[in-house]
């Protein structure tokens, strides 16, 4: 059994074998593997007795349930109006230059993916970014780079 298969079985065991568990199962896979591979989606479909198309259809609806390979650390910089006004463009530019990737791309070592996100709910403390589940408000380009460097060391 592959590690993905084992993970899916474990998640289905934990959340239950019903349609209502589909989201927690998919979220659990993303937590471990950073994206949903074809293998993972087919495996979930089999375990929950759904069609693979149905599982893919659900997964592809949600921004956080990626179906393309992502790096170990996913950086999401908020791009909505207040963060825009407070300088998210400079933050994105700084990270983009440092990691040598554009928004939507992943570094060659698979450590980082840089994405932009819609309102993250920190409009009074913009610009803000999420790295995986952790939040970093009140960014400056300098501060953002220091945070990314910390993650690079991990």
């Amino acid at each position: 059994m592959s590690t993905t298969e084992a993970l899916v079985k474990e998640l289905v065991e934990k959340n239950g074998r019903t349609r209502n568990s589909l989201m927690p199962v998919l979220q659990g896979i993303v937590q471990q593997e950073h994206f949903l591979s074809e293998e993972a989606l087919i495996c979930v479909a089999k375990e929950l007795d759904l069609s693979a198309a149905d599982v893919y259809g659900t997964a592809s609806f949600y921004t956080f349930l990626d179906t393309v390979p992502r790096g170990k650390n996913i950086i999401r910089v908020c791009k909505t109006i207040t963060c825009h006004m407070k300088g998210k463009d400079e933050v994105i530019k700084a990270i983009s230059n440092a990691l040598k990737i554009k928004v939507g791309e992943t570094t060659h070592d698979n450590k980082f993916t840089l994405l932009s996100a819609n309102c993250l709910g920190w409009c009074h403390k913009g610009p803000v970014m999420l790295i995986n589940d952790e939040v970093f408000p009140e960014l400056t380009p300098q501060k953002a780079l220091e945070i990314v460097e910390e993650y690079a060391k991990k």
Binding site: L26, T58, Y62
Partner: peptide, 23 residues
């Protein structure tokens, strides 16, 4: 229950669909 980054799921019936494991 956790969402996965979809604004429209704040709409109540979309939220139910999401909780039921659907789009």
């Amino acid at each position: 229950k956790s969402g996965s980054g979809a604004y429209v799921c704040g709409e109540e019936s979309a939220l139910f669909e999401s909780m039921e494991g659907k789009r």
